[in-house]
Amino acid sequence: MKNIMLSTVAAITVLVATTASAADKEECKAVRMSDLGWTDIALTNTTAEILLKALGYEPTQTLLALNVTFDSLKRHDIDVFLGNWRPVQDIDYKAYFDDGSVIPLVTNLEGAKYTLAVPKYVSDEGVKSFDDLAAHGDKFGYKIYGIEPGSNKPLVDMLAAKAHGFNEDWELVESSEAAMLAQVRRAVGNKEWIIFLGWQPHPMNVNMEMTYLSGGDAEFGPNFGGATVRTIVRKGYPEDCPNATKFFTNLKFDITYENTGMNMIMTDGMETTDAAKKMMQEHPEKVAEWLDGVTTIDGKPGLDAVKAELGIGQ
């Protein structure tokens, strides 16, 4: 009897595991991801998109501001967001986590950074902390360069509170990642002083000499904006789409992988899709990890489908 019971339990366990891997609802075929216009998310989103298509899904990316991304997850207009940077987003979007509107799935990147930075020639002149900035307002033109509106809230709040000695003369210039970096390149080319929002992973860390500023713990967290990045999903997604959820849970990156892929896009001029495919072709071991226990939309082995469709993971 004991052996029969154990066999029954084992059979049920296998059945549940098998069912879970292929039990995505029909609506799960469309996987809706948010894109902020950041190159790191473009790389990770496109990596997911390529693999999901090979698995029979129909993924899409929609360009949204950060605040709109959280609202869209809450309204079930978006399913997945791969760019939940912590701790910087913890305070501003705490309510979404508290009420269960969004579900943290996995930390997809460790060792990231996200805070204000200056060119090295500026830090060599003694500007190494947030508290050093206000005294040199004339050299900086009383401007701080950020990215798209909705992603700069720590800086907006900092200037509104007149923290670190800032006053009403200071202005936050909001644009986009590409526009901000173009401004930084112009300033560096002319050896002008500039303050900008920097982060890692990003080719900026290898393409120019820059210094992350200390003293911004209140705005961006300790350790020079030391961060982790999580994948978050809408409420109900893990229950509705267990196979897709398994895939996104497996989908983890590292700093070197993202820096290399982003450099292909931003420095070498490769299309994002080509860069994502090339990175996967060069790292088949990661592809195998990402597809471990994942099936196609109709329940067939996921890695086999990717190999057949894309030649990735050979």
Rank of each mutant, 00 (worst) to 15 (best):
L109V: 04
E110H: 13
E110D: 14
E110V: 13
G111T: 00
G111V: 01
G111K: 01
G111E: 01
G111N: 04
A112I: 03
A112T: 06
Y114H: 11
Y114F: 15
Y114Q: 09
T115G: 02
T115H: 04
L116T: 01
V118L: 05
V118S: 01
P119F: 06
K120W: 12
K120V: 13
K120A: 14
Y121F: 11
Y121K: 03
Y121W: 08
V122L: 07
V122M: 07
V122Y: 01
D124L: 10
E125V: 11
E125M: 14
K128V: 13
K128H: 12
K128R: 15
S129F: 12
S129Q: 13
D132N: 11
D132R: 08
D132Y: 09
D132G: 08
L133D: 03
L133Y: 06
A134K: 01
A135W: 11
A135P: 08
H136G: 08
D138A: 15
G141L: 01
Y142T: 05
K143W: 10
K143M: 13
I144D: 05
I144C: 03
I144F: 03
I144T: 03
I144A: 04
Y145P: 03
Y145E: 04
Y145H: 11
Y145N: 06
G146N: 00
G146V: 01
G146T: 02
I147W: 09
E148Y: 15
E148G: 12
G150D: 05
G150R: 03
S151N: 10
K153V: 12
K153E: 13
K153F: 12
P154A: 02
P154H: 03
L155T: 01
V156L: 13
L159Y: 05
A160N: 15
A160T: 13
A161Q: 12
A161R: 14
K162P: 06
K162E: 12
K162F: 07
K162T: 09
K162V: 08
K162H: 14
A163C: 10
A163S: 12
H164I: 00
N167D: 15
N167I: 07
N167R: 10
E168A: 12
E168K: 10
E168Y: 08
W170N: 01
E171Q: 15
E171F: 09
E174N: 05
E174P: 02
S175M: 11
S175D: 09
S176L: 00
S176H: 05
A178E: 12
M180R: 04
